[in-house]
Write a protein that binds this DNA or RNA. Structure first.
Lengths: 138, 138
DNA sequence: CTGCATCCGAAAAGATACTG
DNA sequence: CAGTATCTTTTCGGATGCAG
């Protein structure tokens, strides 16, 4: 099914990465779908937020400021399905559900966190570039 | 304007990252907008593709398999505005426009590339997790 | 409290035709 | 070739309501 490697890009270009069987640059490669979950706006923030530990649904919702209930729910399901997040439900009353990163999720989240910190660190340059660009247009 | 640091998350939580003035976890923080450009599905692939050098519009389109003209155009504009991509147009006939990473863009793209390679490398685990999850649902 | 289901308007993505 | 304009389809995001 979806377990076999995907073909290279149709034009027959040499791949950028290396000899790996999966190539995000190819149209229907499963790696692209997973990458999309990981880099998705809410997905990336949720993963990064979970680097701090285990959280309940509404705790996460407060941490990832601005996320709607629906999107957080969807996001957590997708990340759980990808094996990045573990969901632990206790059927007490009131119920308690905790979300935490798996080992794989931690690895991915750390990598993501580096990207986030890079962007935050060089944000002034990017904001300046934006201003310059906007001024050029006007 | 948009140059001042954004407030922390509303609940008053201590921030995850560090002492940086910008916090992606806060609702209207500019860093979140930029991060969105960088992690966007087409944005991330475009940045990674440009790690290989300078490309013309349609060359890029073939590299980033499946992207529509509109989305590539939008994506390139956003990345150019953020100061990550440089656009060089020659008004010859036919016209020739080359896109390449700026120094900042290269830095960001390298970080992104690490994430992509991590995801590609551990994709088998993620696909297995997906299958297990789907089986559990059925 | 932790969610899922549903509806709705708004926004974004996708496909494709057309222009300089 | 390098895009923009336009149209359609999908997704997003908020507001419920409801169940365990």
């Amino acid at each position: 099914m979806a377990t076999e490697p995907c073909a290279g890009s149709p034009a027959g270009l040499e791949q950028l990465s290396d000899e790996l069987p999966y190539d995000v640059f190819a149209r229907n490669c499963p790696s692209r779908h997973v990458l999309k979950d990981v880099t998705h706006a809410w997905g990336s923030l949720t993963l990064a937020a979970l680097l701090d530990g285990s959280f309940r649904f509404n705790e996460l919702r407060r941490r990832v400021d601005g996320v709607s209930e629906k999107m957080l729910s969807q996001t957590l399901h997708a990340l759980e399905r990808d094996g990045l997040v573990h969901r632990e439900a206790q059927l007490t009353n009131p119920p308690r559900v905790d979300y935490r990163l798996t080992e794989l999720g931690t690895t991915v989240a750390r990598q993501l966190q580096e990207l986030i910190m890079l962007v935050e660190g060089r944000l002034p340059e990017m904001l300046a570039a934006q201003q310059a660009y906007d001024a050029r247009q006007a």
